[in-house]
Simulated scan of single mutants.
Amino acid sequence: MMRLNIHFCLILAVLVSACSPNWQNLKKEETIKGPSRAYTAVLPSEWKRAPTDPEVLLITRDGLFLQQISVVRERLDEAFPGKKVSAETPPQELALMQYKKMREEEPDYVQVQKAETKGVLALFPVNNAKPLAGTTERVAIKPYKLDGKDAFLLETRSYNSWGLEYRSQAIGVVHEGDFWLIRYLAPKLHYAARDQLTFEDFLKKMKLKEKCRIFCSD
């Protein structure tokens, strides 16, 4: 019975993960520049890019609650309110601060239009599908190298209001005066393992660059 319940939860996640027509469909691999040209990334073919704030990259293959890869930039002095953070802060300390932050908040990055909250989404609100911040549990913290730069890898698990378990891998790095978080999030059932290699390939192809400071066009 528990197995059936989990599969039903996954079906609900599929229903609320339908992508809006204003998302960008990637028919082939596409190389993009991040904000201030501080990184380049290769977006995988057959994935979709969600409309977001300029500081955020958010992509999915089948829908945000089935798998997602995000890259988020925050100013270093704003990333962890109440904490003094610098480029010299050890990655292990940053990882613990990030874990605490994830326990307090599971942010919404996608820009949703009012019309998109009707139909299926009215019957099964998106907030029911997203993982609940308060359920986040630490699985592991490991050192990591992102394009040769010291970083951390934070692995966590969490659950949505239907009891569906999600797995998360978050890479955190200080680069060019900002804090960057690159994250993979997917349900443990079927999707997390299926798209793991895509995330690893995304990380391998990501390149950190010197930030553009004048006459920039992102």
Results as ranks from 00 to 15, higher is better:
Glu176Ala: 10
Phe65Gln: 05
Lys114Thr: 14
Phe202Cys: 06
Glu29Thr: 05
Asp77Ser: 15
Gln196Asp: 12
Lys207Leu: 00
Asp178His: 06
Asp62Gly: 02
Thr40His: 13
Met102Leu: 14
Ala87Gly: 11
Ile182Met: 05
Met97Tyr: 14
Asp53Gly: 00
Glu165Phe: 02
Tyr159Val: 08
Pro44Ser: 12
Ala79His: 03
Gln67Asp: 15
Leu181Gly: 06
Pro21Val: 02
Ala192Lys: 01
Phe179Trp: 12
His190Asp: 08
Pro91Gln: 09
Thr117Asp: 10
Gln67Asn: 15
Pro81Arg: 04
Arg167Leu: 14
Gln196Ala: 14
Phe152Cys: 05
Leu26Ile: 07
Gln111Cys: 02
Arg73Glu: 15
Thr135Phe: 02
Gln68Met: 05
Arg37Ser: 13
Gly82Gln: 09
Ala186Gln: 06
Arg75Trp: 11
Glu55Asp: 12
Tyr144Arg: 03
Phe65His: 05
Gly63Pro: 04
Glu200Arg: 04
Leu15Ser: 01
Ala129Gln: 04
Ala95Cys: 10
Glu30Ser: 07
Thr40Gln: 11
Ala115Met: 09
Asn22His: 10
Glu104Gln: 14
Lys27Asp: 07
Glu30Thr: 06
Val14Cys: 05
Leu96Glu: 15
Leu76Phe: 09
Lys209Trp: 13
Phe152Leu: 03
Val16Phe: 01
Ala186Thr: 09
Cys19Ala: 10
Gln196Val: 03
Glu165His: 01
Ser158Gly: 10
Trp47Leu: 08
Ala186Trp: 07
Glu30Trp: 04
Pro51Arg: 12
Ile59Cys: 02
His190Ala: 10
Lys100Cys: 03
Gln169Arg: 11
Glu55Trp: 03
Ser70Tyr: 00
Cys19Gly: 02
Leu197His: 12
Arg103Val: 00
Leu154Met: 09
Lys149Tyr: 10
Glu105Asn: 09
Gly177Tyr: 13
Val56Arg: 00
Gln111Ile: 15
Ala115Trp: 15
Met97Cys: 07
Ala87Arg: 09
Ser158Val: 05
Ser168Asp: 06
Glu165Val: 10
Gly163Leu: 11
Ser36His: 13
Glu29Lys: 09
Lys114Ser: 15
Asp147His: 05
Pro51Thr: 08
Lys209Asp: 13
Leu208Phe: 02
Arg49Asn: 02
Pro81Ala: 04
Glu165Ala: 08
Phe152Ser: 04
Ala50Cys: 08
Gln98Pro: 02
Leu153Gly: 06
Gln24Arg: 05
Gln169Thr: 12
Gln196Ile: 04
Ala140Met: 04
Val126Ile: 13
